[in-house]
C-alpha cells in the first residue's frame, strides 16, 4: 500500500468519467424516464376520463330508454282511448240505426194496419150496405138513407 502518482491519475479519471456521465448518460435516461412517467400519467387520466364518459353515456342511454318507454305508453294509452271511443261511437250508431229501423218498421206496420182497417171498414160497410140493400131493397131508398149509412160506416 504505497502511495504514488496513480492517485492523481485516478482523481482525474474520476472527474472525466463523472463529467461524461453527466453529459451523455444521465440526461437521455432521465428524459426517457420522465417521458414514460408522463405517458403513464396521461394514460391513467385518459382511462379515468373514459370511465366517467362511459358512466355519462350509460345515464343518457337509460334516460333515452325511459323516455321511449314513456312515449310508447302514452301512444298506447291514446290508441286505447281512441279505440274505445270508436267502439262507443259505433255502438251508439248501431243503437241509433236499430231504433230508427224499429221506428220505421213500427210506422210502416201502423200505416199498414190502418190501411187494412180502412179497407176492411170500407169492405164491411159495403157488405153491410149490400146486405142491407138486398134485405131492404124496396123499403130503403139508398139516396134517402145515405146519411144513415154514412153514420153507420163511420161507426164501424
Amino acid at each position: 500500500m504505497n502511495l504514488n502518482a496513480t492517485l492523481f491519475a485516478q482523481l482525474l479519471v474520476f472527474f472525466i468519467l463523472a463529467w461524461f456521465t453527466m453529459k451523455f448518460v444521465w440526461p437521455p435516461i432521465m428524459k426517457a424516464l420522465d417521458e414514460r412517467a408522463q405517458k403513464i400519467a396521461d394514460g391513467l387520466a385518459a382511462a379515468d376520463k373514459a370511465k366517467t364518459d362511459l358512466a355519462l353515456a350509460e345515464r343518457r342511454a337509460s334516460d333515452e330508454l325511459r323516455k321511449a318507454r314513456e312515449s310508447a305508453a302514452e301512444f298506447r294509452g291514446g290508441a286505447e282511448k281512441q279505440v274505445a271511443q270508436l267502439i262507443e261511437e259505433a255502438r251508439a250508431q248501431s243503437v241509433r240505426i236499430v231504433a230508427a229501423a224499429r221506428e220505421a218498421a213500427e210506422t210502416e206496420a201502423a200505416a199498414a194496419s190502418q190501411r187494412a182497417r180502412e179497407a176492411l171498414r170500407e169492405h164491411v160497410a159495403q157488405l153491410a150496405v149490400a146486405g142491407a140493400e138486398k134485405i131492404l131493397r124496396r123499403e130503403i131508398n139508398a139516396q134517402n138513407h145515405a146519411e144513415l149509412l154514412g153514420q153507420l160506416k163511420s161507426e164501424l
Partner: peptide, 29 residues
Amino acid sequence: IDWSVINLDTVFWSLAMGFLGLFLLMRAA
C-alpha cells in the same frame, strides 16, 4: 510515498472498467 511512480496496471484497469461501465450506460442512454 513516491510521487514519481505511477501504477500502470491500476490506471489501465480502472480506465478499462470506467470505459466499459460508461459504454454500457451510454448504450442504454
